Computed example of a mutant assay.
Amino acid sequence: MTSSPILKVQNLKVAYGGINAVKGIDFQVGEGELVALIGANGAGKSSTLKAIAGLLSPAAGEVEFNRQQTKAMPAYELVKLGLGLVPEGRGVFKRMTILENLQMGAFLKVDAKAFEHKLEEVYFYFPRLKERVHQLAGTLSGGEQQMVAMGRAMMAEPKLLLLDEPSMGLSPIMVETIFDVIRNLAHKGMTILLVEQNARLALQMADRAYVMESGLITLSGAGKVLLQDPRVRTAYLGE
């Protein structure tokens, strides 16, 4: 990793409901990097992301984001610091329109011109949202809701974007659409931490990646190197 880390996680442990979901992991994300966290269902990936985003309290360890210790910070403070989350299952506001969902993402913006500029950028990536801007989010397809969730996070102009299983439950065409946007955002310099069950897609895109198994990080390296690793190929690529 060449750039300075915007996120540092040290000895992170997460437990809930009597389950030790994350058992003491260390990793970091450099500014401008796309880092993937891959692993089987139940490996602790989403719990890790929720702890970073302030949605779960770590049992132990340190999380440093943007040079600040964030373990005791509530989620809304982390948003102010520049953390954006696209949650697993999308989490759109179903009784609000697409536009209202996007406005929720920009609630910290006071400059109307900056808001409009950002809105046009989201529409550039997701033209379908512009076509249906006044439609209720709850009436959209899963793929369209994923677009809304990503657009909402982008509206806040995060310094670090956390993506939790963005391809889950989507059609192959929609997966391609969503991953094209992620790729474009990464090329433009956005820092991204991607949790993804589709290991092949994630590793093809990632600058670096970590493999999680049973709450521990068992492998790490450049995405394209891990893509060729026989252990990864056997366990996650069905080879």
Rank of each mutant, 00 (worst) to 15 (best):
L162R: 11
E33K: 06
I98F: 04
A59H: 03
K109R: 09
E31L: 03
T97D: 11
L140W: 04
G82R: 02
V211T: 08
L203T: 03
A209F: 06
A36I: 14
L12H: 13
L160M: 12
K71G: 15
R208T: 05
L37W: 11
L140D: 00
V195G: 10
E165T: 11
L163N: 14
Y236S: 05
A137P: 14
R231V: 12
F124Y: 10
V181P: 14
G169I: 04
L194K: 01
E31Y: 10
R233A: 11
V92A: 08
L237M: 09
P127K: 09
D26Y: 09
T177I: 11
V63Y: 01
H187P: 00
I19S: 14
A114C: 01
S167F: 09
E31N: 06
F115I: 06
V225G: 06
I178N: 09
V14C: 07
Y236F: 06
A21K: 05
V110I: 05
V79F: 02
G91W: 02
H134Q: 12
N101Q: 07
K8M: 06
N66V: 09
Q228L: 04
R132S: 06
T191S: 10
S214D: 15
V63A: 04
G142W: 12
M96I: 01
L161V: 04
E121S: 10
L85C: 11
